[in-house]
Write a protein that binds this DNA or RNA. Structure first.
Lengths: 193, 193
DNA sequence: AGATAAGTGGAGCAGCTACTCCGCTTATGG
DNA sequence: CCATAAGCGGAGTAGCTGCTCCACTTATCT
């Protein structure tokens, strides 16, 4: 089951393809043609299809990359002593991701109700880790006891919806957005609790 | 500029096409073929294209329908005396819409960063009406004074994201979801405000 | 009922794009 | 520096789907 060891140039081409795919998907959306990706990478389409058997596989690889990165981010947040600090740093890291992978976050959210088994299982891991983070806050007494933990986790995750973020970015800096989101998530909108 | 008065059968066909489009889009997603819609409606494809010049126009008509309905919903909420009551009834009405038009809400959210002028302008109207609702709550003293009004409006709107709703629907009834969302939106997650 | 214009159906066309095939190029090991 | 197998490019193919065309049907009006 070990990889057959790629020739040096082949390996380089693969890397350039992945970078190109990110760039093209970011600019043209996930419906962009494979041809354009190959062109940007400076290789023939055949090379693209030697690395990713189908277009679908290419997209899946990209989504998987984002999911893994988000998974690591949540794990780091969970490792923090204070749950609220964890949530804050999660938001900061998540928004940083949006600048790089924004286009994929839409897919990331959509994949929540798709049945592409592979994506779904990772999605569930992410959600349950987030749930654990919330649960920890409840146990420590810093988050409400009567919280709907799953909904809370989902609402943290949806802070990362690209349309919202981009909309706000037009008039606010990242710091301001994080603060406002934290404020809303933690304390809500009402005056009397 | 007045409509040329359709023949009775033509009018009926148009209605059936719209219903079929809703049904097919709901089941197969927005990428479904036009042919399938025509078949479900029991008419030829030519009839579909006589009513909607292009596929795009058909989709646009559907999105517009959802936006208009949402617009009315927000206006009703805004007309209510108490802003919090308004938000609560908005959520209830919105979730009811999700059962019927769920598939379109994704587009509805996506259209927020697209530049299809027509959709965007309606989207802005909806958002600013929601902003006004929040503002009213602030003025009445039931919502925090230091709120980021635009973000608050956006977070109310994103309560309607289909993936979230569908995910929760699997284990909770609508009433429970509305309560949990209201609870989170108004009072947040933290114990000490 | 007959005239007629409004509406219809569906075969087929056109354009688009994922993917294949194979003759050629080039890295690699001896 | 050669042999060779690993990798490459890109023209071309296959299949899919939005949309058109026009011979035919049918609602409507008198």
């Amino acid at each position: 089951m070990n990889e057959p060891v790629l020739r040096a140039d082949a390996r380089a081409n693969r890397t350039r393809l992945i970078e190109a795919a990110h760039a093209v998907f970011r600019e043209r959306g996930l419906d962009a043609e494979t041809k354009e990706i190959a062109e940007l990478a400076g290789v023939g389409i055949a090379t693209l299809y030697r690395n990713f058997a189908t277009r679908e596989e290419l997209v899946a690889a990209m989504v998987a990359e984002v999911q893994e990165r988000m998974q690591r981010t949540v794990r780091v947040a969970l490792a923090q002593d204070d749950a609220i600090d964890g949530i804050r740093s999660l938001l900061q890291a998540g928004f940083a991701m949006l600048d790089e992978y924004g286009y994929l976050m839409t897919v990331f959210h959509e994949s929540m109700h798709e049945d592409s088994a592979k994506h779904l299982s990772k999605q569930h891991e992410i959600l349950s880790a987030l749930g654990a983070l919330v649960q920890k806050g409840v146990a420590a007494g810093v988050l409400r006891r009567n919280l709907d933990v799953e909904l809370a986790a989902l609402r943290i995750l949806t802070s990362f919806l690209p349309p919202i973020y981009q909309h706000l970015r037009e008039t606010r800096d990242v710091e301001t957005i994080v603060d406002a989101q934290i404020q809303l998530l933690l304390h809500g909108m009402a005056t009397n609790p």
